[in-house]
Design a protein around this nucleic acid. Structure first.
Length: 314
DNA sequence: GGCATTTGACCCAC
DNA sequence: GTGGGTCAAATGCC
């Protein structure tokens, strides 16, 4: 039976590495002198690095005979968190016991209140593709809680999940709890899109500001341009909003009538969990390549490493 | 046939 | 022991 688990793990690793290879090839073409797009390269690089991280973690787990952890969704978590909280002096029995324990809740979560006019939680569009994997009646709640995971869990090892529950007090309101961070490609495309939109918004505000012959005094009536931009944009509740330092923070945002922009944001932080975040950084967490100077040779090197890994697995 | 959803059973933390 | 989270077989849809 264990052999079956290892085989399916191997398949997952191959999927992850294949994805990385594809991305490396794409990057290779993007780096062509005439078609170079810095942003596109950034997005691809982040995807490639994430694939590497995922594959390495998978291989490490398989090497330790930990396929059950992969099947149980404990993949891609920091190695030290896998070993329990006893430190380095625990015995092998403890290791076995800990490996069977359900991992404590992920590093961060978001509590989002969404006012949905559709009346169906499945139609809440947050920009990601989700697959429902369970539903549960919750004690004391009038409505069941639905469990969703990222569609790209198997193909890209993305462990993001969310829970959606209709609010008791207002049936038209849904409470959405996000858990885990997207490491899939759609997250990167989304971030890229958001960056572009943000830049466009800033440009528009700057143009408007400049078009007025003289600048207004900066006070409550005439806030600075960047303040206006941030207000207009509202919270970007993609995981990129949460740095590792705020990884266990969660915030609530209500697109329902709350303020002039229809969005309210509150941030909550847990100090104890904050310490845990620092001690257990997630490998693929918030890696940015904006300052990285990458050459064509680097991209080729990426690809050759992926090919080696794939050859080894096949 | 492939993919998504449903739902009862199982596992684990408290 | 209980409740919440996840698994996986069954089922439905395209």
């Amino acid at each position: 039976m264990e052999k079956v688990g290892v085989l399916s793990d191997k398949k997952t690793v191959i999927n992850v590495l294949t994805e990385g290879k594809k991305l490396a090839n794409e990057l290779k073409s993007q780096l062509h002198p005439t078609t170079t797009s810095r942003e596109a390269c950034d997005v691809l690089l982040e995807s490639i690095l994430s694939s590497y991280e995922n594959a390495i973690t998978l291989l490490a787990l398989i090497g330790n005979g930990a396929s059950s952890q992969i099947a149980a969704g404990k993949l891609f978590e920091p190695p030290n968190s896998m070993e329990g909280s006893e430190g380095s002096n625990h015995n092998s029995k403890d290791q076995v016991q800990n490996s069977k324990k359900r991992k404590s809740l992920p590093r961060w979560s978001e509590h989002v209140r969404v006012c949905s006019g559709t009346g169906s939680e499945g139609q809440i569009d947050d920009g990601y593709n989700w697959r429902k994997y369970g539903q549960k009646d919750i004690l004391g709640a009038n409505h069941p809680r639905a469990y969703y995971r990222c569609t790209h869990r198997n193909t890209q090892g993305c462990l993001a999940t969310k829970q959606v529950q209709r609010a008791d007090e207002d049936p038209m309101m849904f409470e959405v709890i996000y858990r885990g961070k997207h490491s899939c490609r759609q997250e990167r495309l989304r971030q890229k899109k958001e960056r572009k939109e943000e830049e466009m918004q800033q440009e528009q505000v700057m143009m408007k500001t400049n078009s007025k012959a003289f600048s207004f005094p900066q006070n409550d009536l005439f806030p600075a341009a960047d303040t206006v931009t941030n207000s207009l944009l509202g919270p970007t509740y993609s995981p990129s909003f949460l740095s590792p330092a705020t990884s266990d923070s969660y915030f609530s945002l209500s697109p329902c009538p709350v303020n002039d922009f229809g969005i309210a944001l509150s941030l909550h932080t847990s100090d104890s969990d904050f310490a845990e975040i620092i001690s257990n950084p997630t490998p693929a967490m918030d890696f940015t390549f904006r300052d990285l100077d990458l050459s064509f040779d680097d991209a080729v090197s990426f690809e050759s490493h992926f090919l080696d890994a794939l050859d080894y697995l096949h």
